[in-house]
Amino acid sequence: AFGATENNFAYAREYFVYIMIGIPFFMFSNGMNSIIRADGSPQFAMISTLIGAVINVILDPIMIFVFHWGMM
C-alpha cells in the first residue's frame, strides 16, 4: 500500500506482524502514562518514558546484529 516492492515486502510483512503483537502493550503504556501525569506525577511519567526509550535504543542493535533477528 505504501510502495513496497517484491524485494522488501517480506520484511514489511514480518515487521507488521510483530508491531501488531506489540500494539496492546503500547496502548496500555500510553494510557497509563497519561493517567500518571494527570495524577500529579509528571516527573515519574517522563522518567518512565525515557527509560523505555533508552532500553529500546540499547536493545535494538543487540537484537538485530547479535541475535540476528532482523525485523523480528
Rank of each mutant, 00 (worst) to 15 (best):
I55C: 13
F28H: 02
E6W: 08
F9E: 10
E6C: 02
I58T: 07
F16V: 07
G40T: 05
V54S: 02
S34F: 06
F2E: 03
I35V: 13
H68Y: 08
F26N: 02
P61W: 10
M72V: 09
D39F: 05
R13Y: 04
I36C: 03
F65V: 00
F26G: 01
E14D: 12
R37S: 04
F65P: 00
A38W: 11
P61F: 09
R37L: 04
T49G: 03
N56Q: 12
A10Q: 14
I35D: 01
F28C: 03
E14C: 04
S48I: 05
G40A: 05
M63D: 03
V57R: 01
F28V: 08
V57L: 04
F9W: 14
V57M: 04
Y11D: 08
G22F: 13
V17P: 01
F65A: 00
V54P: 00
T5C: 05
G31S: 12
P24G: 12
I55E: 01
F2G: 11
V57I: 14
S34H: 09
V54T: 14
A4S: 13
I58K: 08
N33W: 06
F16S: 04
V57C: 03
G3S: 12
D39A: 10
S34K: 13
Q43F: 06
I35A: 03
I51M: 08
N8C: 07
I19R: 14
Q43A: 06
V17Q: 13
M46N: 15
